[in-house]
Nucleic acid binder design. Structure first.
Lengths: 237, 237
DNA sequence: AGCCGAATTTGATCTGAGTCAATCGGCTGC
DNA sequence: GCAGCCGATTGACTCAGATCAAATTCGGCT
């Protein structure tokens, strides 16, 4: 055993082989900065269903998703839920103005995040405009996605919603894991319903309908796209 | 003279007496910077219904709204429209990643904007992180509003949508023009419908219903809130 | 003032998606 | 192996909001 070995790594040295290194906020940092940066964050694990943070909680940290999927949602006082997005590896969470989170986030399946305390992270950003610019880019990208989702929620039929969701989700998985007609759906039907502004029954019926039409196959934990072109036609309609 | 025109103070050529000076991106600049900044932009006027920019247009400029109201919207190929927001004085438009606008914007009534060519503006930002930070703040604020609007579109009833809209719109007018129970509605019923994911008929019926309940009075160019508490109760439900 | 076209309101009816209510199927633990 | 559970599916029925169709009101113009 080495003289100064420790049982658990003190946060760092992980960035080098971090899977999201190129895609996440970190992509704006050079090698020297990264060395400093990695001491700020620590890896944290969340089990399936665990809540990473809740709406209205005081923001204490920023999060960089490393592995797994999270649901981001808002609740109405009577319990109705709207999922405002799913977070995947590379996504950056915790930006806000009020000092409080404006949505809740919990793990769908096992999740690893890189957690940065707000204070040190804020100080690190000072004098590193390229990191700020990167964060701004991510915010603008999310804003664009949010607007697309508003169109879906306000103006699309149930069939269009489901077809659009399948294609959009596949797109995200493709950019993470490469092209495949298998589309893993780690979230529940209820999650999909709450994302699309539908009920679980309508989502289920629409899946069944797509399967009967022969354009998808429902498999355990996801679907297979048998006829992507037909799904695109349904989404565009 | 229109009784409910949404305008800010008359605006000269110089930032010094610009009505949105304190609220807009410019609020992050000191006097010397402002002097340089004002040479970058030019005031441009748009008449009622004119399009300031269209979705998919190459971005050539950023815009700072000085006076008036704009509708920001996306169209589906078959003509369905979703209004993703209304822009008021102080709002900053034109941020994007792709080099193209991701929504269209047109004037509702007369509009004045401060237009900044993309190139010079981008160069001005370089080395002024506080301006970048200000822009980032605006983006994050919009993102938060976008998420709230997703909840409205996906999970609220028609009554709740209309009540929430009236309160939210009033809030924005209050912060521009001070408190009043008169709520100017410069946009058409169709605009409101396309913002709320409803039809014009449903919006009209809901207004009438609120009036019959005695909680609002429909007046020309807007409404009067007779019983704000009841409207809040309808919105929260 | 009087006419025209557009926006809004109102009414009648329809329908897509929600609600309510059984199953079904796959896993887990005994 | 099977009892119990939880998520998903399916079916029957309902209803909020859409659609279709007139009025009605308003603003602009001569």
């Amino acid at each position: 055993m080495k003289p100064f070995a420790v049982t658990s790594e003190p946060n760092g040295h992980f960035c080098d082989d971090c899977a999201v290194r190129g895609a996440a906020v970190c992509s704006s940092l050079d090698a020297a900065e990264l060395r400093e940066f990695e001491h700020l964050g620590r890896r944290v694990h969340f089990g399936s269903g665990e809540t990473v943070f809740s709406e209205e909680d005081i923001t204490t940290s920023f999060y960089n998703v490393l592995e797994g999927v999270m649901r981001l949602y808002k609740l109405l006082p009577d319990g109705r839920r709207q999922i405002v997005g799913f977070a995947l590896p590379g996504d950056f969470l915790g930006m806000n103005l009020s000092g409080r989170h404006n949505f809740s986030a919990d793990a769908i399946g096992a999740v690893n995040v890189c957690q940065f305390p707000k204070g040190p992270f804020g100080r690190f950003i000072e004098g590193r405009p390229q990191l700020l610019r990167r964060i701004n880019e991510l915010a603008i990208r999310e804003l664009s996605q949010a607007r697309d989702h508003m169109v879906l929620l306000g103006r699309r039929s149930a069939d269009e919603k489901v077809a659009t969701f399948l294609l959009g989700w596949r797109e995200r998985l493709v950019s993470l894991m490469g092209l495949s007609d298998m589309v893993a759906l780690p979230m529940s039907r209820q999650d999909i319903a709450d994302y699309l502004g539908l009920t679980i029954e309508t989502v289920s019926r629409t899946f069944t309908k797509l399967e009967r039409l022969g354009v998808i196959e429902i498999i355990h934990g996801g679907i297979t796209l048998l006829d992507p072109a037909r799904v695109e036609a349904m989404a565009a309609a």
